[in-house]
Design a protein around this nucleic acid. Sequence first.
DNA 1: ACCCAGGGTCGTC
DNA 2: GACGACCCTGGG
Length: 312
Amino acid sequence: MANKRAIIARNDHIYIIGETDFEPKHIFENGQAFRWTVSDGAYTVVADKYVIRIKKLSATELALHLPDHPITQSPKPAVVLEHAGSMEDYENFWRNYFDMDRDYAALRRDFSKIDRHLKKAVAFGKGFRLLRQDLFEMIISFILSANNNIPRIKNTVARLSELAGEPLLERDGIVHYRFPTAKRIAALSEEQLRKTGAGYRASYIRQTAEILADDPELLDRTRSMSYHDAHHALVGLPGVGAKVADCILLFGNSTACAFPVDTWVIKLMNRFYLGDEKNVKRIKAAGVELFGAQAGIAQQYLFYYARENSIK
DNA sequence: ACCCAGGGTCGTC
DNA sequence: GACGACCCTGGG
């Protein structure tokens, strides 16, 4: 039984009502996205040309927002995407961005049957969704992630956007910038890139941006490739290894079989399943073997569960 | 104050 | 395949 949910657009806001799997904290605080801030439980997110604020609404709040709407008669979980636009924006962008056509409730049920660890992870992370983010943004963000920590990655991405991205709008005294194009980043000097906090990754970023600026179709082509071919194409870019390529495909294209293996996944896969496997390729193969065609999503639930509970 | 680890990749052996 | 170096920075 698919969960019944309603999407309503009104006054530049989009409401997602009755969706069991939409928890802003679990969507954004798990390392798949870097262009967000949180304040009083509300998430400000920059995606494409949009700057939205995501809030959970109680039944009372929802009724205040949509006073004359029949849906507010029966209390259901509700989320509002403020400033997200009209129904057209939802259909053209948000539906895809939030991976709304995947049935996460069904996925959780399937994962829960696989084993007790995944069952706990899935219960803990209920409300997670994969984001289908801009591929170029994912490439640069995850080149930055190598041997780095999340606060610094976020800072660098923010400074890079301010340095080379188009200003979008000012809200509450803060100017928000769109993520830069490959062309704009390729035009920066390595010195400028280092000043954003990129460190030694500055040269990878510049080189990769240059390659992609010279071949603007490359990323779009990967979307129609098999997982294997797309992964191979991405690994050819400077600063992009096997793990980063998997992150790009998982968080930029919702390629659910991509299974990134980082230090945390090595730890948790060994602790829960493998014992003492050091070979990353074999850990990745074991993940796909255990969790199936959507192993990357299982990986995200496990990753989030392990990190939030400091399982080392 | 100093040290360490952080969603890995690359070059070298 | 297995090491070690690697820009920085926030947190201990």
